[in-house]
């Protein structure tokens, strides 16, 4: 199977070939945008992302995976919907946390807890500096690794690392103000950036 850069290179001569990039990544781009905005706005962001990418394809950096590049474009386009995004954070509710598997006996308490948690997460996300929020959401929702986030945002990997640390700490404190604030244990994925690139 062709890698993304091979397809994009082919599309320089045969423009229609770029449709395959769309077929591969449109759903992921849509999902990322829908989580930050809403389904309607995500339709537009998805469509526009590929139009922008198509126009800029000659400048694509040649990575085998075009997803970081595409999510970077989508992230930029989402900025145009800042108000909608702020509303989405404000309206974060328990159901947004998804299905929660809990003991039936604890259900009522858990629901209350979930509602409060959702509100606190929403508030924290809304107050995060835009750059930190973009890095955090590309990492958590775009499923990119540190290098992918760096490539998407056009910043060094070291910057991504510090932004993510900052954003995660803010979020952690928001969820549980009593938690140890200096806790640095990485509960998430193994950080994939190589040490020499930090």
């Amino acid at each position: 199977m062709s890698t993304d850069n091979e397809i994009i290179e082919r599309s320089l001569h045969s423009a229609g070939a770029f449709a395959e990039v769309f077929d591969r990544h449109a759903r992921t781009v849509h999902r990322y945008a829908a989580r930050r905005l809403d389904a309607g706005a995500a339709d537009d962001v998805m469509s526009e992302t590929f139009l922008v990418a198509f126009e800029r394809r000659a400048a694509f950096d040649g990575s085998a995976d075009a997803l970081p590049w595409l999510l970077g474009i989508a992230t930029n386009l989402i900025k145009k919907h800042a108000r909608l995004e702020a509303r989405a954070w404000k309206g974060l509710v328990a159901s947004d946390l998804g299905r929660v598997d809990i003991d039936a006996i604890e259900q009522a308490a858990a629901r209350l807890d979930a509602s409060a948690t959702a509100r606190r997460i929403g508030g924290a996300l809304r107050r995060l500096p835009a750059g930190d929020r973009d890095a955090l959401l590309l990492y958590a929702w775009g499923d990119l690794d540190y290098e992918g986030v760096a490539s998407a945002l056009g910043v060094p990997v070291g910057t991504v690392r510090s932004r993510l640390n900052r954003a995660r700490r803010t979020l952690r404190i928001a969820i549980d103000p009593g938690a140890a604030r200096d806790e640095e244990v990485d509960h998430g994925r193994i950080v994939s950036a190589s040490p020499d690139s930090l």
Partner: peptide, 27 residues
């Protein structure tokens, strides 16, 4: 916090067929 964040709106629906078709047609 990361696991919790990953769960937020993790059940969003994918794009509808029509939206995909429109996006692809525009491209």
């Amino acid at each position: 916090e990361l696991s919790l964040l990953r769960r937020i709106r993790s059940e969003v629906d994918g794009p509808e067929r029509a939206a995909l078709d429109r996006g692809r047609a525009a491209l």
